[in-house]
Design a protein around this nucleic acid. Sequence first.
DNA 1: CGGCAAACCTGCGAGC
DNA 2: TGCTCGCAGGTTTGCC
Length: 276
Amino acid sequence: MPELPEVETVCRGLAAVLETRVLRHLELRRKDLRFPFPAGLAALVEGRRVAAVRRRAKYILIHLEDGGVLIAHLGMSGRMLIGPAEGLVLETHDHVVFHTDHGVAVRFNDARRFGFLDHARAEDLGRHKLLEGLGPEPLGNEFSGPVLAEKLAGKLAPIKAALLDQKIVAGLGNIYVSEALFVARLSPLRSAGTVSGARAEKLVRAIKDVLTRAIAAGGSSLRDYVQTSGELGYFQHQWAVYGKEGEPCPGCTCAHGILRIVQSNRATFYCAKRQR
DNA sequence: CGGCAAACCTGCGAGC
DNA sequence: TGCTCGCAGGTTTGCC
């Protein structure tokens, strides 16, 4: 499920029900997800009011009024589902439940358990092991052609791999990298270091365009639904290339159509004629 | 240091 | 119907 647009959608859903509310009870139904939950996590959260829900890269940051921050990551299969606490029915893989002071329950469901939950002080976030070193937010003003080109300079790895590296730009994942490279008409096989100048400008515009459209659509749903309401995101209907091996290229009349290759053990979709 | 494969864990669809 | 295999949106680790 979750790349930047999906995490952004989840954050907006969480903000609507959690901000200004007190977290009465943090129900930990196992002792770990990808990592063990930090010692005393429930006590660090219970009785605190939520000041704000924010996103950094693919991390959900739940700021508490006492300066503590809950850091959540959805991994590959994580979901946050909001519903009434009364008559709550837990489902398989509901590992954590947040209970608010106004009768709302948020279930953190994660079948594959690649997600996690951590706690930090707000003033320490910049030095948090998982957050330090993250590259710029792709939708922020600070993410520009020159900034990207500088990060890519000298890199021999394919541009596909570089864009998945969260130190270069934070929040892209496997789907949106293929989509952005298609919009920018750049081959995923091209060496990252050759993307500079006008090419870098074009790629930055493509990344911002794809992410903005995906957020507007509520993200993409594959097997899981994305939004906290349980509604489907529908950006998958706007994909140009992802998952479309063998289908006609939407941008040209090439005979081969959309190709699927494997880079760094992950599927890449592209048009070899339109993308150079 | 850079780049790549494998590992973490579970579910689902395709194919036999 | 039921089994096996391959593949899946992320990130870290370890190896060359």
